[in-house]
């Protein structure tokens, strides 16, 4: 457990124990960016990421409402929230695979994400958009491990909790995923800036 997460964690757990709804706002404010970033890079679309993040926090609230005080006191919010998010994402991804949306008349893989705010689009580089799209080429577990490790910077131990797998397995998912991305992603290595 790294120092920063521990420092954030304690006042939030204290607030949750004191008053669930006030504590929930503290939890949301502390983790909304990390949960949203992970959601966005898992599902790949801005509007879906908003849905996924809202649903994950709602489920978190409903779970907390049923927890005993001791369970809240021992809560490690970040891997716990990420586990809720990961389960939601896997379930929605699987039901989407079972019920694929009708194919668009014209394939438009480069089209901008319609729900993404304009300033966000302006900030993000073309290479970023390309790399984000390449995450689709990974297996579910590779994508999850790489997004958690390299996009939102979780330590391996927390990712192991989220994946419910040993750290060695997590490292192997990351390693294989990175290897696949290196093949597909020219990145900035070819550029001479």
């Amino acid at each position: 457990m790294n120092v920063t997460e521990t420092d954030i964690r304690l006042p939030i757990v204290a607030a949750l124990t004191e008053d669930l709804d006030t504590g929930f706002v503290a939890l949301f404010d502390a983790y909304r960016d990390v949960v949203f970033s992970a959601a966005l890079r898992l599902c790949g679309r801005w509007a879906d990421a908003e849905d996924l993040t809202a649903e994950a926090f709602l489920r978190a609230y409903r779970a907390l409402a049923g927890y005993e005080p001791q369970r809240i006191e021992s809560l490690r919010p970040r891997p716990w929230l990420m586990t809720i998010l990961a389960n939601l994402w896997r379930n929605t991804a699987r039901s989407a695979a079972r019920h694929p949306p009708p194919a668009p008349l014209e394939a438009a893989p480069e089209a901008a994400d319609p729900a993404e705010p304009a300033e966000q689009v302006a900030e993000r580089s073309e290479t970023g958009r390309e790399l984000a799209a390449l995450l689709d080429e990974l297996t579910e577990e590779q994508r999850l491990a790489i997004v958690l490790r390299h996009v939102v910077d979780l330590p391996i131990a927390e990712i192991a909790t989220v994946l419910g797998a040993p750290e060695g397995t997590v490292k192997s998912h990351i390693s294989r995923g990175l290897k696949r991305l290196r093949v597909l992603y020219p990145g900035r290595n070819d550029e001479h800036r």
């Binding site: 970033s37 709602l58 290479t127 984000a132």
Partner: peptide, 21 residues
Amino acid sequence: SLIADLGALTAGAPAGLLERV
């Protein structure tokens, strides 16, 4: 660059997301 570019893929949660919950 791959690791650095992955690290740049974070995004701030949009305003109003708490009202969805």
